[in-house]
Amino acid sequence: MSQTKPLNITTIGAGTIGLSYAALHLSHASKDVSALQITIHDTRPDLEEHILQTLPTHIPCTLQKLRNDRRIAYDVEIDDYVSVHRLIIDKDLESAVAEAHIVQEQGPEDAEFKTALWPKVEKYCPPNALLWSSTSGIPASTQCIAMKDPSRLLVVHPYNPPHIMPLLEIVPSLATAPKVIERTLDFWKNKDRTPLVLKKETTGFVANRLAYALLREAIHLVKEGVASVKDIDDLMTSSMGPRWAVAGIFKSYHAGGGVGGLEGFFKNIGGTVQACWDDIGAVNVGEGWEKDIFRQTREAYGLVDTVERDEKTRRVLDAVKSKE
């Protein structure tokens, strides 16, 4: 994706994911600020104020001149960090995507919105622009149904927040062109991310399916009075959390089986595993458990300091990376 002109990235949607992506791109461009232009498109009436208040909290501490004076450069030079950078706020979709090399969509999680958006983007943006959706569960095959060229679109689903977490689930539809997948992988690998291509579309993709399965059982255990919300979180951060930071599920249990590996693990305690699987709780949204669990969570945590969370997560990831 080398070019003489700056790389133009347009993010559609200035919510948590959209601004986190903008921070990620700005951070990676800090050594060559002339190489990037970020355009943020949203129709919210307080867009500039919202960006000024929120974007600085996503910038790593080593780059946080923005946090100190709450200023952002709108196509002008202001300080060392934003000099030459062009950070553009544009409420008009046509002009926002007109020169984009990449368009990242982080709009409402609504299929009707997305299927109506992409034909407009396709019409206004350059023909070679990469088109990515950050949806948590609406597949590209649904989003592209009204496009003239559905081969241009694929899902690039981040793990929140993307300016911290390395994972990006690359989820093409059957119509997505292989070249689009290849260019997308090249881009993110060069940003030191971990892009993983899913072999087929599935509801919720993979990361959320795994996380929600754990969430469901955690809710069941609280509902049944086995442990409190805080107990389960403490259990996670003192056991599976640090373990899974350095070894995933299969590697962990493969190690747990000793010389016999994963096969040995199931040979030794497969009966217990099956008994737990048989006893997994049936929990459904709207069945009445919400009030007590929401109350416990509010009492335990109040409003979570996501800046502190992100800095601690960054240090964990740095520690894991340093051992590779």
Score class of each variant (00 low, 15 high):
T142M: 06
N160R: 01
K179V: 15
S151E: 04
F205C: 01
H163P: 08
P162C: 08
I164L: 08
L196S: 06
L210H: 05
H157A: 02
D186L: 11
T203W: 14
P158S: 09
L153A: 03
S173V: 03
M147A: 10
L198S: 03
H157M: 11
A207D: 04
H157S: 03
L153G: 01
P139I: 02
L131A: 11
P172M: 05
S141W: 03
V206W: 00
D186M: 12
K189I: 14
N208K: 05
L153S: 00
M147S: 09
L167T: 12
L196E: 02
L130V: 03
D186S: 12
L174A: 09
W132Q: 10
Y159W: 13
V180R: 01
M147G: 06
A129D: 00
M147T: 05
L130Y: 03
R209A: 11
I170P: 01
P178Q: 13
P161A: 13
N128M: 10
V197K: 06
S151Q: 00
A140P: 11
T135P: 01
A146H: 14
N128A: 07
I170K: 01
S151M: 03
L196A: 08
T184K: 03
P172D: 05
E201A: 03
L185Q: 15
P150I: 04
A207L: 12
C144Y: 12
H163G: 00
R193H: 10
T135R: 01
S173L: 04
K191M: 09
V206Q: 02
L196Q: 08
T203M: 12
H157D: 02
S173T: 11
W132R: 04
D186V: 11
T184D: 02
K189L: 08
R183N: 15
L167V: 14
L174P: 12
T203Q: 07
S141N: 10
T176G: 12
